[in-house]
């Protein structure tokens, strides 16, 4: 499952639970230009269950999380920082950059 691999690579790079939250907020903003809450409300999905989101939305998340995980795997051992926030922010910057790239391929 792409999301598990995504969260595993965040952890492997030193990210904590907040890094996951931050990554989800960031990829949702970048891919769909909205918040998670707005995405569920706007598409009529059952709140907080991604398999009820439109198929193309699920696919966008899957592709983005797979590619982000790949990038994070490549970077393992290179991300550091003076505190947890710095580490998380560096991980988030990778996710943001990948999400911007993924966004270019999406039809909306």
């Amino acid at each position: 499952m792409a999301f598990r691999r995504f969260t595993d690579t965040i952890k492997a790079n030193g990210g904590d639970e907040k890094a996951y939250a931050q990554a989800v907020v960031t990829e949702t903003n970048e891919l769909f230009g909205c918040t998670v809450t707005e995405l569920y409300e706007g598409t009529g999905g059952k709140t907080n269950r991604r398999d009820t989101l439109p198929h193309e939305v699920q696919q966008a998340y899957t592709v983005n999380e797979s590619l982000s995980a790949y990038e994070l795997e490549r970077m393992e051992g290179t991300i550091g920082g003076e505190n947890q926030r710095e580490v998380n922010n560096k991980i988030n910057a990778v996710v943001r950059e990948q999400s911007k790239q993924t966004r270019k391929w999406l039809p909306w």
């Binding site: 639970e17 939250a21 931050q22 907020v25």
Partner: peptide, 25 residues
């Protein structure tokens, strides 16, 4: 607020967000 705003998958609340281990800050 962040737990709510980042909740793409409700099960993540149970396995990560609210899975408070004693060593967590």
């Amino acid at each position: 607020m962040l737990a709510y705003a980042s909740c793409l998958d409700s099960w993540m609340l149970l396995t990560s967000t609210f899975a408070f281990r004693p060593e967590r800050w």
